[in-house]
């Protein structure tokens, strides 16, 4: 006997639950926006410019003392953050003024100082991005996200109907906002990798929605006498085993990456896991039910077009 994550003939009234789902979605979106407004994102050097060093110590260093020591070097106000484990610290510094040698001078100054105070310390990685380049990276990231959304809307409109385009984009905006809200809450570093994660979330959340939309379209043709609410419930329930199975499989793969994978992509994978959970939720509860509110009609409810031959079963 094979494993079934969703039992056969599951029939959940998603459409009936839609107002609860809409309220929850709205609350999550507003909450995330508030978090973004109040706490803000911990933007990486990719977006604000500056210098980052990943330093590995032999033993976990006392953070407060370490901060005082680095600040005492006269290289600007530092920000410290544990990275993956307590022995690895991310040191953020403002980009030094002056020529290219200035960055290197700061790096060697910090390196020499830390090595003297904590023997066996090693600088594993340095990144420095000038303000000009970081501005361009923000711009590139925004363009990539914006254009993806536009492409999604156009594609779904072209492939289905405009209602589907709108409901999909609304759900996607929710997915992205909640993911970013998560980054504001945890203060995990938001860098270029996370933008890639956000774009992938768009891709996968979209996958879910296209599959359900596809089924709704198919059922609209098949069951001409059914009203739209039943068609949506039927479609979501029919595709539910697939939606759950794919999400569970993906999350299993991502959890492996999250806990066993390199620390450098921890934030990236965390974003993906959250994005898939949120995306699955919005696919099942929000985007399809939203179609009713947007006024999609089944053949049974739609006004009969002139010349159309309709046989309505009663």
């Amino acid at each position: 006997m094979t494993l079934k994550l969703v039992p056969d003939n599951t029939n959940i009234g998603f459409v009936r639950l839609r107002y609860i789902a809409f309220a929850l979605t709205l609350a999550l979106t507003i909450g995330s926006l508030a978090l973004l407004g109040i706490r803000g994102l911990n933007l990486g050097v990719d977006f604000v410019g500056g210098l980052t060093m990943e330093v590995e110590f032999k033993a976990p260093p006392p953070l407060d003392t370490l901060r005082e020591q680095v600040d005492g070097l006269g290289v600007g106000q530092s920000a410290l953050q544990e990275f993956g484990n307590a022995r690895t610290i991310l040191v953020r510094l403002p980009l030094p003024e002056g020529d290219q040698a200035a960055v290197q001078r700061v790096v060697s100054k910090v390196q020499t100082d830390l090595k003297a105070k904590y023997p066996g310390t090693e600088i594993r990685r340095t990144e420095s991005v000038s303000g000009k380049v970081s501005g361009e990276l923000i711009q590139g990231g925004l363009w990539a996200v914006g254009l993806s959304m536009l492409a999604v809307a156009l594609f779904t409109w072209f492939r289905f109907e405009w209602h589907f385009g709108v409901s999909t984009v609304v759900a996607l905006v929710h997915d992205i906002t909640v993911t970013m809200g998560f980054f504001a809450l945890t203060q995990l570093e938001f860098d270029l990798n996370i933008v890639a994660a956000v774009l992938t979330i768009i891709g996968y959340s979209l996958n879910d929605k296209v599959v359900i939309d596809d089924r709704i379209r198919e059922n609209l043709r098949k069951y001409r006498s059914m009203d739209i609410g039943h068609i949506i419930d039927l479609s979501v329930n029919e595709t539910l085993p697939r939606t759950v199975m794919t999400s569970v499989t993906l999350i299993a793969a991502l959890l492996a990456l999250l806990f066993l994978g390199p620390d450098v992509i921890f934030g990236f994978t965390a974003a993906m896991v959250l994005g898939i959970v949120v995306g699955t939720y919005s696919s099942i509860f929000v985007s399809s039910s939203l179609l009713i509110s947007l006024g999609v009609k089944s053949r049974a409810e739609a006004p009969i077009e002139r010349g159309e031959r309709v046989v309505r079963a009663k």
């Binding site: 361009e136 990276l137 590139g140 990231g141 363009w143 990539a144 254009l147 993806s148 492409a151 999604v152 594609f155 270029l192 933008v195 890639a196 774009l199 992938t200 768009i202 891709g203 979209l206 996958n207 296209v210």
Partner: peptide, 15 residues
């Protein structure tokens, strides 16, 4: 096809 579109956009605009 939608995912390919997103991937192409990422390639063109991402860095």
């Amino acid at each position: 096809s939608l995912n390919i579109i997103v991937a192409i956009i990422m390639f063109l605009f991402g860095s």
